[in-house]
Computed example of a mutant assay.
Amino acid sequence: MHLYQDQFSKEHDFAKQKQADKFLVIASTQRCGSHMLGHALYCTGVFGFPLEYANPLNLKEWEKQLGARGLHNVLDILQQRRTSANGVFSIKVHYDHIREFQGFPNLLKRFPDALFVLLHRRDTLKQALSFSKAKQTGVWIAGQEAKQDNAEFDYQDVNFCLKKIIQDTASWRYLLASQGCRFLDMEYEALRADLTAGVQRIASAMDITLPISTIRELTQRQADRQRDVWQQQFLALHQGKQEQLFKAPSGIKSRIRRLLGY
Rank of each mutant, 00 (worst) to 15 (best):
I165W: 08
G48C: 03
Q144T: 00
L125V: 12
Q65Y: 09
R122D: 09
P112M: 05
T44G: 06
V74P: 04
S130G: 07
W140T: 00
I166G: 05
E61Q: 13
T44L: 04
R82H: 13
V88N: 10
W62Y: 15
N150M: 12
P112R: 02
E145A: 11
R69W: 10
L71R: 03
A134K: 02
K126D: 13
E100D: 05
T44K: 03
Y174A: 10
A142I: 03
G67N: 11
D123A: 04
A151T: 06
Y174F: 14
Y42M: 10
D149A: 13
Y42F: 14
G103A: 02
T124A: 15
K135V: 02
L118M: 08
F101P: 07
N159A: 13
C161Y: 05
L41P: 12
T137G: 01
K60T: 09
Y42E: 13
G48D: 01
Y42S: 07
N159K: 15
A151L: 06
W62L: 07
T169D: 14
T44P: 05
L57D: 15
R173Q: 15
F101Y: 12
G87A: 10
V93R: 06
R99V: 14
L115W: 02
D76L: 10
R69D: 10
L78Y: 06
C161H: 08
R99F: 11
L41I: 04
I91E: 15
G138R: 05
Y155A: 06
H94W: 13
E61I: 05
Q144H: 06
I166L: 12
N58Y: 14
A142K: 11
Q148A: 08
G48F: 01
L71A: 01
D149F: 11
I77V: 15
A146F: 02
L162V: 00
Y95T: 02
E61S: 03
R110S: 08
K92I: 05
L125G: 12
Q127C: 03
L59A: 00
D154H: 12
P105W: 08
L71H: 04
D123W: 05
R69T: 12
K126S: 12
T137D: 00
F89L: 08
F104Y: 15
K163Y: 04
Q148H: 07
V158D: 00
E52A: 02
L71K: 04
S132V: 02
L107T: 04
F104H: 12
F111W: 11
Y155I: 10
Q80F: 05
V88Q: 13
